[in-house]
Design a protein around this nucleic acid. Structure first.
Lengths: 113, 113
DNA sequence: ATTCGTTATGCACGATCGTATATAGCGCTA
DNA sequence: TAGCGCTATATACGATCGTGCATAACGAAT
């Protein structure tokens, strides 16, 4: 059982587990399409998330190139890497803070995973 | 911007912001119907959440009575109150742990709420 | 027995989400 | 110039979610 953290702007998710994983996959693969494939996500969905992230932050998190060697690609900007690192750090901090209480909470469940 | 914490069993939410609020509303109002109304939630939805919570935990979190004085009602069990208190405590702990990092993160956003 | 407000369900409808699919444009490479 | 794989976008479809409505059962109080 993991606690999940979602950082919200109003009611919209600025950055959550799904977007963070997508950022990592883009960093690994060098393209939105390959990242989506590696996550079992549709390209349309991945593109939509990229669009949203680039719009919600001060500057784009993902830089995209259409055409060129290999057809093009995508890469994280410095801001993208920064946002991802900060998010992961917050995840770790929150997890550490809650870890003990979470173990106790698990005992209240019928089928602890 | 608030971090939201969801405690999951596998992929299902054992307890999250919505269910926690519902538990509180039931404790306040003494019925599922009144709790749902006070939250602007449909009774069907609230009933479904109660059903899920009672099934996911070792023992029911909500005790329900159909018929009787006032038509019936619902109340939290001791386990229900315990689970709610533990959840709220974890929220506070996680929030405190992340608070500073969250403030910095906000500056990366275009429209900080 | 009737009344009352609740719990307990089922079903239809609209909104939302995500996938799949199709098409177009892009720019390097050969 | 033709090919390649990616970005960019629109549309249609199914799945899922939540509301609203309708109905039945319930049990104390009158």
């Amino acid at each position: 059982m993991r606690p999940r953290i979602r950082l919200l702007i109003g009611d919209a998710v600025a950055l959550g587990p799904g977007k963070a994983s997508l950022l990592e996959a883009i960093d690994d693969t060098g393209s939105i399409a390959a990242a989506a494939r590696s996550m079992g996500m549709s390209y349309g969905r991945a593109w939509q998330l990229v669009q949203a992230m680039n719009g919600d932050f001060r500057a784009p998190l993902i830089e995209r190139v259409a055409g060129g060697r290999g057809g093009g690609g995508a890469a994280l900007t410095d801001l993208g890497r920064d946002a991802l690192a900060r998010y992961r750090a917050m995840e770790v901090q929150a997890d550490a803070a809650v870890s003990d209480a979470l173990d106790q909470f698990t005992e209240l469940l019928k089928n602890p995973p």
